[in-house]
Design a binder for these strands. Structure first.
Lengths: 210, 210
DNA sequence: ATTAAATAGTAACAAAAGTTACACATAGAA
DNA sequence: TTCTATGTGTAACTTTTGTTACTATTTAAT
């Protein structure tokens, strides 16, 4: 456990902080597809990602969803940082993109450690900032990119996050992530295939250039 | 100057911090339409808004723009907070929505004061968080709301920010903010008028219900 | 082996948004 | 006043995206 923490976070946190993290936090394993937190739910812990990847989604009242970004190893979720200022309801939904290992820290340590460890403060800011930029990227995609290109970007991003050009997913699930309909995704995937950019099969597809 | 600072920020910052702010910062007046910072430009100061309102825009490579949100009195711009972690290029463009009064603070004080004043740290976090939620709202609008409703929301927001149901703006300028074309905006405005929600005139319009 | 559920392909159509083109009105400048 | 630039209205058309409906295929369950 100590080893995993050091591997992913040893280069940013001093030993003493790693000790504290180890002491107050606990490690959990989550399986692909597990819902880690729902929109509106109380935030009690902040996650440090040790292995795997987490999908962060936004949801509207009707339950429509939109993929915001992925958390990868070494990332944390700045949404948790709302806690620092008293708010405690999650603005997002989080789902394990693949089997993942998380280290959960009770939120009260967020501000305690900020006073105590410079490296923690830097981490929190850096983390906040990364998420900020990812939201800006999401906005750019929605505002300036058409669905065809947005889909292709999405697939290439999947390849990076899952470290495999073979993506195991259904058209319907892609449609959920991009907040559109299955038929539209099928149509655009077919177009991407004709352009020679991907290869389609049942329940999976392969990205050919990236 | 002291008075203005105390009016807008006295209830959050302790006297000593207000003194420091007054000492190292300087007040500027900007006119409606002034560009305060361009995308990609170096960020050297962080702004505290004393009066007026600032429009924050995102821009893509082709120069297309999209309104993200407005800063109002008591707000600061969390984008400046990138500076805390070494980055210094602006991710956004800022334009004075109306004549405004700003207090500019050299960015190096950001982190100095975070160590020194608890109230400053709270302010920075609160500010960050507000901006975060405004980005999420922007995403919600883009992903889940059609242009007709997005336009109506935009107009109602303008009413709040400008404290007037009479909005002085051209269709073209609305189109820029929403990243669409003038013709589309004219069409949708006409529809809103027929619905009895607004009243159109040249160079201005009035929001009837809000 | 049969059935049912999930997945994918595609056509046909509808709605939303973007584009082009042009007429006309208004405000200022000359 | 006349001219010009700007702003607005609208029609006609295109493109993009969403919807409905139906087919075929594959997978899993009984």
């Amino acid at each position: 456990m100590r080893k995993e923490l050091t591997e992913s976070y040893g280069y940013i946190f001093e030993d003493e902080l790693i000790n504290e993290i180890e002491k107050v936090g606990h490690k959990i394993n989550v399986a692909e597809g597990d819902v880690l937190i729902e929109y509106g739910q109380d935030v009690t812990h902040m996650p440090l990602l040790l292995d795997g990847a987490i999908k962060i989604l936004r949801q509207d009242k009707e339950g429509d969803e939109l993929l915001l970004y992925f958390l990868e190893i070494g990332d944390s979720c700045s949404m948790t940082m709302n806690c620092c200022i008293g708010k405690s309801k999650s603005e997002i939904k989080a789902i394990a993109e693949k089997n993942s290992v998380l280290f959960l820290i009770p939120v009260e340590y967020m501000s305690i450690w900020m006073k105590k460890y410079k490296s923690w403060t830097s981490f929190v800011f850096e983390s906040y900032n990364n998420r900020f930029n990812e939201l800006l990227e999401a906005i750019d995609n929605l505002a300036f990119v058409n669905l065809h290109d947005r889909l292709y970007k999405y697939l290439k991003n999947k390849v990076v996050v899952n470290k495999s050009a073979l993506i195991e997913i259904t058209h319907q699930d892609i449609a959920y992530d991009l907040n559109t309909s299955r038929v539209v995704i099928s149509r655009l995937l077919k177009a991407l295939e004709k352009e020679g950019k991907i290869e389609l099969s049942r329940n999976k597809l392969e990205v050919l250039e990236f």
